[in-house]
Design a protein around this nucleic acid. Structure first.
Lengths: 227, 227
DNA sequence: CAATAATAATAGTATTACTATTTTTGAAGT
DNA sequence: ACTTCAAAAATAGTAATACTATTATTATTG
């Protein structure tokens, strides 16, 4: 697959654009690894600064706080995923196949490939989305963050999925809710599968096939019944 | 409604049982209000101690940290909700009606009534579940917390709902995933409705009627299609 | 009513989350 | 090559947070 595009990040997210310097890229890329390793709650700029051999204050010159770094990475992932959706849907004409493709893209953990252009690892970003993605909006700053348009990539992705849903069945009344439901459930079921398996019916070791099947039933029977 | 029961809390949750003392009950009840007011991230035992006119150290004698207090309240809510489910399903024979009742109980914010026996406010607990409920398990302690059986009430509730699902349609392959999906989506859609309305199709001011309808379609069309 | 156990308050400490100030680096002009 | 000056990063802080050890107070029992 060749994805050739440039993700434009919201500049409210950072104090200094991390893409522009070696240190900035290191903060984001290694920050992502460290958060996944020790958990967002335990993650501090101090620990990251030791890891990448710089100082706390230098990191603060790029990001206001660790929450903004989290939103930066998660937001990047939503934009990246939207591009992937555009790319994979490009040649498809069947609306059902389009939705099935979207569900797979959201629910399946990407296999690690050596990143080329991007300094952010896709598979690490997917892990972070599953374990900490909802923390971006489950915060007291949500009103301000929303005004700063930080959730635009997530809304754009939902909006795009909602359009495909409406094309499949224009009578269906809840395309946006169904779109956000697909995303949220794909991630929460993946999380439960790994950590609280009794809340699911998926075997822990196996891949996401059953989850994809579960989501397909959920989505298509809803959309069929209201045709 | 008369619910007459005693919720038995897991004693791994606290260092000293808060139900046994006036101070303990104040910590939980007022803690819940304060978390809802300022947000879990901004909440500290110091701030709570000022609010209820005691000291930080006294609160630490009851709860190891603020995360445990959060889990205490959320866990209490799951147990309370399971009792409510038992109570409301008691006289029902129709399986469809049972599931519809469950969906309503989960999705509708309870109207505040003066609590009698319980020192925890049900409607405040519901608000907390919507905004911070998932933070109980989205933490690095999940493996240890799970071993301490902290998520038992949530699992029990899901298990009970899964049973009703299986009774309605014994062929359906994902009763547990569907049960946890109902709970997670009811709360995340309620949260989005309030904070990021473009991710839903529900008008902000109106009650949960449309959300209930959305969930009903989702659940029953899935269950019908695989009969 | 003294002994002792339970409870809570005082007074700490280490870490976290930042910020102000100083130093270093590196490019531009002379 | 050498100064100038601005950008970048490091040093050295501070206030708040998340706890803990110690001391004091209160309640209970022999």
């Amino acid at each position: 697959m060749e994805l050739d595009f440039k993700i434009k990040m919201n500049n409210k997210l950072f104090l200094r654009n991390p893409e522009e310097t070696t240190l900035g890229k290191k903060i984001v890329a290694q920050g992502l690894f460290l958060i996944n390793k020790i958990g967002f709650e335990n993650f501090t700029f101090k620990k990251l600064s030791i890891e990448i051999d710089t100082t706390e204050a230098s990191i603060y010159r790029y990001f206001e706080n660790k929450h903004r770094l989290l939103v930066y990475i998660i937001t990047w992932y939503w934009s990246y995923l939207e591009y992937k959706v555009i790319y994979y849907l490009h040649n498809l004409n069947d609306e059902k196949l389009k939705l099935e493709t979207i569900i797979k893209l959201i629910a399946q953990e990407p296999t690690t490939k050596k990143k080329k252009l991007e300094f952010i690892s896709e598979s690490e970003a997917y892990k972070l989305v599953v374990s900490d993605g909802s923390k971006t909006y489950l915060s007291r700053n949500i009103t301000k963050d929303n005004k700063d348009r930080l959730f635009k990539p997530y809304k754009d992705l939902c909006g795009r999925i909602a359009s495909v849903i409406s094309e499949y069945n224009s009578k269906y009344k809840y395309p946006h809710s169904l779109a956000s439901t697909i995303i949220e459930i794909a991630h929460s079921q993946n999380f439960f599968k790994k950590n609280l398996p009794s809340l699911t019916d998926f075997p822990k070791d196996i891949n996401e096939k059953k989850l994809v099947e579960f989501l397909n039933t959920l989505v298509f029977s809803s959309l069929e019944s209201s045709k």
